[in-house]
Amino acid sequence: MDLRLEGKTAFVSGSTGGIGYAVASALTGEGAAVVVNGRDTGRVQDAVNRLRSAHPGSKPSGLVADFGDAEAVERLLEDLGQVDVLVNNVGLFGLADFDDVDDDTWQRYFDVNVMSGVRLSRRLMGGMLERGWGRVVFISSESGVNVPVDMVHYGTTKAAMLAVANGLAKRTRGTGVTVNSVLGGPTYSDGVAAAVESIATAQSAPLDAVRDAIIGQNRTTLLKRFIEPSELANLVAYLASPRSSATNGAALRADGGVLTTVL
């Protein structure tokens, strides 16, 4: 299916690896001019080079910024300019007992996971509304609906992302702009892969066996395996396209059936 993204400019926060890079690659493959982002200049340039190699003729670019630093975000926005598609992907993830998460950590998670999307949307949505077309996609998580006991800080920020997206969608009434969220499930991102490999090495166990054992602990998954980043990116690419014009204010699941509610 042609997603009609030729000539569109997209910015994907936190896109040098994992889900973010998969989204950037999917959008690039559909003809969008994608701006990738990360905290490290070398990783950003590497992501740009990989996109060019994977999609000959494409013209991706990159901007460096730590989304936990408001001033760095402001500098990025000054360099970014007009975009048609904004994918709020950047995020922190980690397991921790509630009693062990101090105020500074809570603040860091809110700055990166929530305020990144707030700051980007506040600057970029106005232009979309003026031009009469645009797409904003928030990469949330099933953990924002069913908050894990060992990730209360993470789940809380993902729930907040859903609230921000829902409120912003109401600003788009009668326009060609949409705001939606994607509820990702257990995804085999770079970080998860590294953690699984570390466990396998420590246990002197086969990688596949460790990966299967970890996902097997999730009693509600219907997929019964980790989601690949590209699978989640396929949904994001659709939501970023003109094809998704009737989908607005929605939280769509790419969770492998982990959530058990009907809606």
Rank of each mutant, 00 (worst) to 15 (best):
Y109S: 09
R243D: 11
D69V: 01
A200N: 02
Y188W: 06
R253N: 05
Y21F: 15
V137E: 02
D99H: 15
D40K: 15
Q217H: 08
T221W: 12
I215F: 05
D212P: 02
P206N: 10
F110H: 14
I215G: 04
A65D: 10
V149E: 14
S61M: 09
S140C: 05
F110R: 08
T220H: 04
D103A: 15
V112K: 05
A54E: 06
D66H: 12
D102N: 15
R253Y: 01
V35Q: 07
N88K: 14
R52A: 10
L235Q: 08
K8L: 10
R211E: 12
A200I: 08
A47D: 06
N166M: 04
R108L: 11
L183F: 02
P242G: 10
D255R: 14
N37R: 08
P229I: 02
I214R: 11
R253P: 10
R119L: 12
G249A: 11
G134A: 06
F110M: 09
F11E: 03
A237R: 14
L27K: 07
L222I: 04
A165L: 09
N180Y: 01
D100M: 08
A195N: 14
H55W: 12
S204P: 02
A54L: 06
S241Q: 06
D66N: 15
E142W: 09
A96V: 00
E197I: 00
E71N: 12
V177F: 09
A159Y: 04
E71R: 09
D103L: 14
G256Y: 08
Y109N: 08
R122N: 01
S198L: 06
A160G: 04
T201N: 08
V196P: 12
L51W: 02
Q217T: 13
